[in-house]
Simulated scan of single mutants.
Amino acid sequence: MKKVAVVTDTTACIPQEQVARYDIEIVPVQLIFEDKTYRDGIDISAAEFYARLRKASRPPTTASSSPELYLEAFQKASQSAEGILCITEPSRFSAMYDSASVAKEMAAKTLPDMNIAVLDGTTAAAGQGLVALAAAREAAKGHDLNEVKETAENVMARVNLFATLDTLHYLVKSGRVPQAAALVNTILQIKPIFTLNHADARTVALPRTIKSAMKRILKLMERNVVKGEPLHAAVMHADALDNAIFLRNRIASQFNCSELFITEFTPVMGVHTGPGLLGVAFYSESS
């Protein structure tokens, strides 16, 4: 039996082969599409979701994972581990941290001997995935819960995330930005680049094309890596694989990557950003 199991959710955008390799427990987030509920990654794939989103007359919505779903994941993880580290999205963006915390309290009765730590994230999407993978690798080395949690917190403090949107159309439909902003986006064809660091989301650049956006993202990476240190990076995309491959290849040629992979952007966030999103999460091995 291993000392620590890692639990996170589908918003972390971890490829299935990595989930299986490190035995990470994934809690599905729920998508509500035309009055039907789907479990992200189980009942509907990212590719299926974005294909349907392009044709949808009504925007889909999301529902945070319930405490019961987290408790189920804790119970499964407890069968092969002495302790559990659960990593969630930032609590300021969703109720998943609260759900996981309630599940931890519930587990005190059903799993009284299980030590569970719930970590409130400061990054999301592939950034959260990189944190979970770093924690899972540490757990695979046989380290205890405190050591695995310390590794996750250390990586979390160093992760950067930059992404560009192909359109503001879906943000407007979800009520996240004013209609006027979408009008400007349509007229100017701006591809805004945003960052999500330390639970703070903000726009950092307003390029006019995806090609320019990719160049700007690479420059932002150059400013935020530690020179000479190996880089861990995850390129994420929402139904934009060709652009993701191009960006991945540029990153591979420009940086010393010890970890580099492409992953699909979680539909749970894609509800608001729409298809076409392209981004990268990364951190230097030490700082």
Rank of each mutant, 00 (worst) to 15 (best):
N146F: 11
D98L: 02
M106I: 06
T123W: 02
T123L: 02
L119V: 05
L171A: 12
A152I: 00
P90D: 13
A81H: 04
Y97E: 09
E89A: 15
T151Q: 11
T61H: 10
F74P: 00
L161R: 05
A152G: 06
L165K: 02
I84D: 01
K76L: 10
A108L: 12
I190C: 04
S99K: 05
V172D: 03
T62M: 09
L71I: 05
G129S: 13
D98H: 09
A136H: 05
P67L: 02
N185Y: 10
T110L: 09
P67M: 05
G121S: 14
V102D: 02
A157I: 00
T151V: 15
D144F: 04
T186G: 09
E105G: 04
A81K: 06
A140G: 07
G83V: 05
E68M: 03
K76C: 04
A182D: 12
S80H: 15
A182L: 11
A81S: 14
G175K: 11
V184Q: 13
V102S: 02
V177H: 10
L69W: 03
M96V: 12
A152P: 01
A157E: 14
A132K: 05
A108G: 13
G142A: 06
L111N: 02
L111D: 03
S80C: 11
Q75S: 11
Q189W: 09
E68S: 11
T62W: 05
I116E: 01
K173G: 04
Q128M: 14
V148E: 01
A152H: 01
Q75M: 12
E105D: 13
P90V: 10
L111W: 08
A132S: 14
V159F: 10
L145E: 08
R92Y: 12
H169M: 11
D113A: 13
